[in-house]
Design a protein around this nucleic acid. Structure first.
Lengths: 235, 235
DNA sequence: GTTTACAGGAATGTTGACACTTTTCCGGGC
DNA sequence: GCCCGGAAAAGTGTCAACATTCCTGTAAAC
């Protein structure tokens, strides 16, 4: 949350530096590295050298250091004294820990979203998951299906209107984001997940908040069970 | 959080060298400020000047800066550019947001603790909440009751054996810790809470994990409702 | 051939000084 | 008396140099 404040020109500041080449702020560097790590464009276990990053972003080491500190607080990198920062590699137990938490937290998000948003909010999403997305799965266009899935997930979290919850889900989701691609290719998994989303959206369209919560919880639990069953093929 | 004993020097204090005074690490300063803010020994809205803190702890400003960054990431202070860090004051909506999350998260902790720990683990706690603690409440010894309540809460979280969950509960609990004293003095609230704990501990002693989860959730929900009802007297 | 010791290099940790912004305070004007 | 500049002071943001630690490579000893 300490982002999105690019530059506030509060008042008349004369002689803005002619050099339009403004250096990136620490928050921007943090955000950049965050997405790179979440998408595994930087491999787990890789070393993040302060000097290298300072050269790459064209900023001083102090600012890199600040960004690395933020990454450490969020559990994305591990800092070893005098040895630098390495991208945290998530072990199996932590993955299951996170899925146990996602069960209840995303269930809560579904309940709150149902309570806070008008019932008709979910009509179009329901239609999409019943029709076009089924075709997408049948044709094996899984990446596009994932995009719709994540869009719905974000829409639900936003409708839940609980910033603390949103922040928490962000923090844990970014750690296991890469696993979705590996889970969804498991036999029958994509279609099972789609049906669960249809059931949840139907409950949400009827305003049945607690039912939506239960369905979402069970959906994530089944995803966790699939992960346990096929863990040797995934990790 | 009973671990604020910076006992780094395990032995050897024979040499009365004045230089034995090792400077505190950024993590230690962070811990110190964290507990001070959580216990409101530093008032919400108070300014934390870097220069002042550097003088108080006897370290350089850079280290203070690192600690402040960690506090900012945790949402305990807000940093305004060129104006310093002020202790975040929690507004009402955020309190309710946190209680909604605590409902499901502490419910999850109760379920996991029931599943992971032997049933007899909770016998002594059950006996304590049925007998001595009832007397404590009747006599109005609320602070001592709170101590036992928080001890049981920590025991459950530890038994849940989910480090990610423990970390999250820590993060949100420290923001509303001070409210417990104000809730528990509400009419009949302490006794209601005690009965709910007895019911939960009975379920845990029988190994009924899901029932324990439901009871804990309802318990926190009733606390939230009490908070809503009496919010004018509390905040 | 393997191991150990030592020096060189590279990266991180730390410090102090400097630049910029905000606030405060003082004096003048209406 | 009140309001409005404007300079000094205080505090934060930033940076470059210094200190320390760890890793690497080479050479000598067993």
């Amino acid at each position: 949350m300490p982002n999105d404040s690019p530059r506030t020109h509060s008042n008349g500041r004369r002689a803005p530096r002619a050099a339009a080449r403004r250096t990136k702020s620490a928050a921007e560097i943090f955000q950049d590295l965050r997405t790179r790590i979440a998408q595994q464009r930087i491999a787990p276990g890789a070393k993040l050298g302060e000097t290298d990053l300072a050269a790459e972003f064209g900023v001083s080491r102090a600012r890199i250091r600040e960004a690395l500190g933020a990454l450490e607080q969020r559990g994305l990198v591990e800092r070893i004294p005098n040895r630098g920062a390495v991208v945290m590699r998530l072990d199996l137990s932590q993955v299951f820990d996170i899925y146990e938490i996602r069960e209840v937290l995303e269930g809560l998000a579904a309940r709150l979203a149902t309570q806070n948003a008008p019932h008709e909010t979910w009509k179009e999403d329901l239609a999409r998951f019943q029709g076009p997305l089924k075709d997408l799965i049948d044709r094996g266009e899984l990446q596009e299906y994932i995009d719709h899935y994540e869009a719905l997930r974000r829409k639900i979290i936003e409708a839940a209107a609980n910033p603390v919850l949103a922040e928490m889900l962000d923090t844990i989701f970014e750690k296991t984001q890469v696993l979705i691609r590996r889970i969804i290719i498991l036999p029958g998994r994509a279609e099972v997940g789609r049906k669960q989303h249809v059931a949840m959206l139907q409950a949400m369209s009827r305003g049945e908040a607690e039912e939506a919560e239960t369905i979402r919880r069970n959906g994530l639990r089944s995803a966790k069970l699939a992960l346990e069953k096929y863990q040797r093929f995934i990790l």
